[in-house]
Simulated scan of single mutants.
Amino acid sequence: MIPEQKSHSSKAPVIPTFKPDGSAFDLIDPQPSDISFGDMANTLSKLARFNGLYRCPAYSVAQHSVMGADALYRESGDGVAAGYFLLHDGHEYALGDITRPAVDLIQHHIARLAEEAGVEGAGFVDRLAHRALASVKRSIDVAVYQAAGLPNINTVSQYARQIREMDDRMLVAEATALFGASSRSTCLPRVSLPPPKLVGAIVPWGAMKAELAFIDRLQRYVGIAARAR
């Protein structure tokens, strides 16, 4: 069954993906009214970090978001910063987790194809591909933040920096826990930042616990639990 599409003029393309109720989420023009934080919590709790390539049970994006938000709050006492981190991967409930290696690989192939086609400025094409992928995520993030009652994080430089740094710190801690210490020298970017102040080890929770924890932090840090049905 083809999902119902929004009414657009012939000049406005629509790229629909499913919502859980079978209606359409327009990826080109996401609106705050499209965002369901309950669906987000449920979806992210089933979405595995690192494509699930480790040997243990799935460590979910929801758990990553909760543990990072808790660590950021523990370090800063700032619930708004923690709320931003909780939602920083919110776009993945509509897009899936486009991993960093996947982004790098897409950029590599776009640059190579541009060079083979004789396109001048292949480096510019490579940078443009990176900007395009970032724009895809950002367009959904803006709708997520609006639905949460938060300013677009890209306009709040202090929080944007905190979230980027915590994401890198969590990446290193998670990869070390899930793949072992050797991952630091093989697949991780060089990050000269302290480890996050976590409570307990990084051990997969399971989808139900991760979903409920995500909803709990929505209330705790963002105050939107009433929308998380």
Rank of each mutant, 00 (worst) to 15 (best):
A228G: 01
A41S: 10
E211W: 00
G180N: 09
G83T: 10
L218M: 13
R127S: 11
C56P: 01
S192T: 13
S192C: 05
S45T: 06
R100Y: 09
A94L: 06
A134R: 11
A58G: 02
Q219M: 08
I224R: 14
V142L: 06
A82F: 04
A132S: 04
Q31G: 03
H91L: 01
P151F: 01
A114N: 10
R100T: 13
H8L: 07
G38N: 09
Q158M: 08
A177H: 06
I202N: 02
K19Q: 13
G206M: 07
E115L: 09
K46R: 15
S139T: 13
H91A: 09
V66I: 08
L47A: 07
R112Y: 08
D167V: 04
A24M: 12
A181G: 02
S135N: 12
Y59P: 02
F85R: 05
A62V: 07
A147C: 10
L128I: 04
R161F: 03
G180D: 08
Q146E: 15
Q31H: 13
K209W: 01
R169F: 02
V199E: 15
A228R: 01
S9N: 11
S76M: 10
Q219K: 09
S185L: 11
G90W: 00
G96V: 09
V66T: 09
A114P: 08
L47S: 10
P189K: 03
V222D: 00
E116Y: 02
L193D: 04
R100A: 13
N154W: 08
D104H: 05
K19M: 12
L47Q: 09
G118T: 07
H108K: 15
P189F: 01
S36A: 07
R227M: 14
D141T: 08
Y59F: 15
A213W: 00
L178Y: 06
S65E: 14
D78A: 07
L178N: 10
I215M: 12
S7G: 07
